[in-house]
Nucleic acid binder design. Structure first.
Ligand SMILES: [Mn+2]
Ligand SMILES: [Mn+2]
Ligand SMILES: [Zn+2]
Ligand SMILES: [Zn+2]
Lengths: 140, 140
DNA sequence: GTATTTTTGCAACAATGTTGCATAAATAAT
DNA sequence: ATTATTTATGCAACATTGTTGCAAAAATAC
């Protein structure tokens, strides 16, 4: 299982360190679930929040994870699909945010929506957030 | 011009105070532009950030303003269209966020997008954010 | 004008984001 | 395998934002 983490580090030319391996493990385990800095602090043994912060920044930059915009105020990240690379993110999918448990997950499929934009505006990226109650938090 | 602000306060049964009037003026002036707490701190004469914070919360709750989710990390608010009321927001429009100047504006038209949701998930609200460069920040 | 209700301003604290810097660790060179 | 070089880590320090409690001030009701 650490194998996959190691592979990712190598492919992105990142040094193989304990923190990075552990963080990657968490993301691999999380699947479509997005993780915040504080999530990682809870999950790891002796975490340093600044190191985690920088690790996430690095991973984002390398195209390993992407920010999952969910309107929650705190930054969350989720594993990118394979196609992403440095300066080339391809994460045009929607995110679901459960305002009950706070969980945020990546949804399948890409966003397609026609919104009329004022003259002279240039769109670079789109974020689509669905907010509501996840399956686990459904009443009865 | 203060007339409109006063009218809004009355219609929502809010006490007519200096801070509230000033904040409303700012929003009326801002039009489609969303304002952060700190924007208001800059704009007003002797602002207290906690009072502004609570004022915004109150306005939001009353359906006077709505949060403009833009992934910027800080909370921004914009004037609701008339139809909104307490516990009944109808702000299903997209927002544009300029990552150059940081400005966020409300876009016309409502969001329509079909994303496939996993079994058991219930959507309550949708946020659509377009990120890029606004007209003012366009090169040459 | 006085009583009552609400708002304001301040203190205080928590959480998150962010940078600088010395030390430790990882990789490259010998 | 040792040493040199490069990079990552951990800690201090600080900024910003969000959030609550509480007494004084202001707005409305009586
Ligand atoms: Mn995602
Ligand atoms: Mn809006
Ligand atoms: Zn949930
Ligand atoms: Zn701009």
């Amino acid at each position: 299982m650490t194998e996959k983490a190691l592979d990712i580090l190598q492919r992105h030319q990142l040094r193989n360190t304990a923190v990075r391996r552990q963080v990657l493990e968490q993301f691999l385990q999380a699947g479509h679930k997005a993780l915040s800095n504080s999530d990682l602090e809870d999950a790891l043994e002796n975490p340093d929040r600044i190191t985690l912060y920088r690790t996430l920044k690095t991973f984002e930059q390398k195209g390993i994870v992407h920010q999952a915009i969910d309107g929650s105020g705190t930054t969350k990240y989720a594993l990118c699909q394979d196609e992403c690379s440095e300066h080339e993110h391809h994460d045009d999918h929607a995110h679901f945010h459960c305002h009950d448990c706070g969980k945020t997950i990546c949804l399948e499929g890409s966003i397609k929506s026609a919104v009329q934009l004022p003259e002279g505006f240039q769109v670079q990226q789109k974020h689509f957030v669905l907010e509501g109650t996840c399956a686990d938090c459904q009443p009865e």
